[in-house]
């Protein structure tokens, strides 16, 4: 099996990792970089708990080969908060009860980030569509929608 020298940016930091061809991006993040905030609920694209942003767009990191991420920028949940302060999306999830078991949360928050980066004040429908690849078994999603909506409000007010 071939090995590859993979250069990528993870949470703003340039990384270089030697990885075998069959390594997924999820494995690279979790095992090689110890970024275990990226979860794996299925390994086959069905649940979205492994969602990370690849050049700003949400992807299932369980279905991306590490080699395919070569030369790209990855944002994981660990890269969202600035220092001690939570990102407004994280803050809204915490305050409004968008988190129960928390297993879906990193993926949810990253999908929400990708949405809010493009659409400042999304409608309910836009929020639901943007998060439709992230399953949650605990919350029934209502408080997640409310949290994203509130985060949008706060972000567009420029409040942190």
């Amino acid at each position: 099996m071939s090995s590859h020298r993979i250069r990528l940016t993870v949470n703003g930091v340039a990384r270089e990792i030697l990885a075998p061809a069959n390594r997924t991006l999820a494995q690279l993040l979790r095992e090689d970089l110890g970024l275990t905030g990226t979860k794996q609920g299925c390994g086959e694209g069905d649940c979205g708990s492994c969602t990370v942003l690849l050049d700003g767009e949400p992807v299932n990191s369980c279905l991306v080969l590490a080699v395919q991420a070569h030369g790209h920028e990855v944002l994981t949940i660990e890269g969202l908060a600035q220092g001690r302060e939570l990102h407004p999306i994280q803050q809204a999830f915490v305050e409004l009860g968008g988190i129960q078991c928390g297993f879906c949360t990193p993926g949810m928050i990253l999908s929400a980030k990708a949405l809010l980066d493009k659409t400042k004040r999304p409608s309910q429908e836009q929020i639901r569509r943007a998060l439709s690849g992230n399953l949650c078994r605990c919350t029934g999603y209502q408080k997640i929608v409310e949290a994203v909506s509130e985060a949008g409000r706060r972000l567009s007010r420029g409040r942190r």
């Binding site: 915490v94 988190i99 928390g102």
Partner: peptide, 15 residues
């Protein structure tokens, strides 16, 4: 807010 929510929101919570 839940005690564990900040850790869960930032990926620190360990499963």
């Amino acid at each position: 807010p839940r005690l564990d929510a900040p850790d869960k929101a930032t990926g620190r919570a360990r499963f």
